[in-house]
């Protein structure tokens, strides 16, 4: 039975599922990475994802155009991010708690809107899987890597883009400077507030996109609490990734593949109670960090309010 796990179709299945499931985490976690690198902890990711998921679904349901849905989802997410930035940067509110508030608001509001505008579970035709010509014909690799919907490809493309922005541009430098030493950045003429507004709004936009990747691409439905806590896992993955896009990529893939693996463990009849199988991704994510040797550089000013002139 355990040997069955190494059959070709099982491994292909696990990898394909892992890549698909990693998509929402990637968007949300990379967005959160930007925010945290500039010093803002946003625990409201799940609420932003839910609002994005709802908005994307609603627009797609009524217009039949998933691109329009996607756009609105990103806008709604960005708006939530802007609100979070206003709360945490301008109003200097405690970030952990305001994030929980944003989460609760998104959870309730998306559900309320769902009930009042849709009323019942509906389906849409969102982004269908898109086989990339030629590449998807490659045996094994083609199925695993090149037979997904477009938002999956987008999520994986985001990793190098984010890496480039953070490591090779002045903007990235500014973001990290603001996160590490806001007073010094301020003295150098970098507007701490402006950078934080930008990163948190971007984080919100990506959270909205993460939600849309569920409601109009992967699942094509919307339901109360569609994300089921994924946004919190996304926050955890930022720590797993040690605030680097590649680390987040590794973490998302590990978590999602183990989740896909546990489904196979159950199907193949490997005698583990299903509840323990479901635990596997959570346990292994922690274990992986214990055994990984790594250098962590948490942004020094993370979740600390910057008061100009207080150094």
């Amino acid at each position: 039975m355990i040997a069955d796990l190494f059959a070709a179709n099982v491994i292909i299945g696990i990898l394909t599922s892992g890549i698909r499931l990693a998509t929402p985490y990637l968007y949300a976690s990379i967005g959160e990475t930007f925010g945290q690198l500039s010093g803002v902890l946003n625990l409201g990711v799940d609420g932003m994802m839910l609002m994005g998921a709802y908005a994307g679904f609603y627009v797609t349901f009524h217009t039949g155009n998933p691109w329009l849905g996607l756009l609105v989802a990103i806008l709604v997410g960005a708006l939530m991010g802007l609100a979070m930035a206003f709360i945490s940067v301008t109003l200097k509110a405690e970030q952990g708690i305001s994030g929980i508030g944003v989460y609760l608001f998104g959870l309730g509001m998306s559900d309320l809107l769902f009930q009042k505008t849709l009323g019942t579970v509906e389906t849409v035709s969102g982004f269908a899987p898109l086989n990339i010509p030629l590449l998807s014909d490659i045996p094994v690799l083609g199925t695993v890597f090149f037979s997904h919907n477009i938002l999956v490809y987008g999520a994986f493309l985001l990793v190098p883009v984010a890496w480039f922005i953070l490591n090779k541009t002045t903007l990235g430098l500014k973001i990290k400077a603001v996160g590490q030493n806001p007073a010094a950045a301020d003295a150098l003429g970098v507007s701490v507030a402006r950078v934080r507004y930008a990163t948190v709004t971007l984080g919100g936009a990506l959270a909205g996109l993460a939600g849309a990747s569920l409601s109009i691409a992967l699942l094509n439905v919307f339901q109360q609490n569609l994300t089921s806590g994924m946004g919190f896992i996304a926050v955890a993955l930022v720590y797993f990734g040690g605030w680097t896009p590649t680390g987040v990529l590794l973490g998302s893939l590990l978590f999602s593949s183990v989740n896909a693996l546990q489904l196979w463990v159950q199907i193949l009849g490997i005698p583990i109670p299903s509840d323990f199988a479901v635990m596997m991704p959570y346990v292994l994510t922690i274990l992986a960090l214990i055994f990984a040797v790594r250098k962590v550089n948490q942004p020094a000013s993370l979740s600390k309010v910057f008061e100009r002139g207080e150094g």
Binding site: G13, R20, L218
Partner: peptide
């Protein structure tokens, strides 16, 4: 008959992936 208990009444994404897994199986 393959059965997947996904450990949640709300995790729509995992339910969807479970269905994918069944089809792959």
């Amino acid at each position: 008959v393959n059965v997947n208990w996904i450990g949640s009444f709300s995790d729509v994404a995992l339910a969807s992936e479970a269905a994918q897994t069944h089809i792959n199986a």
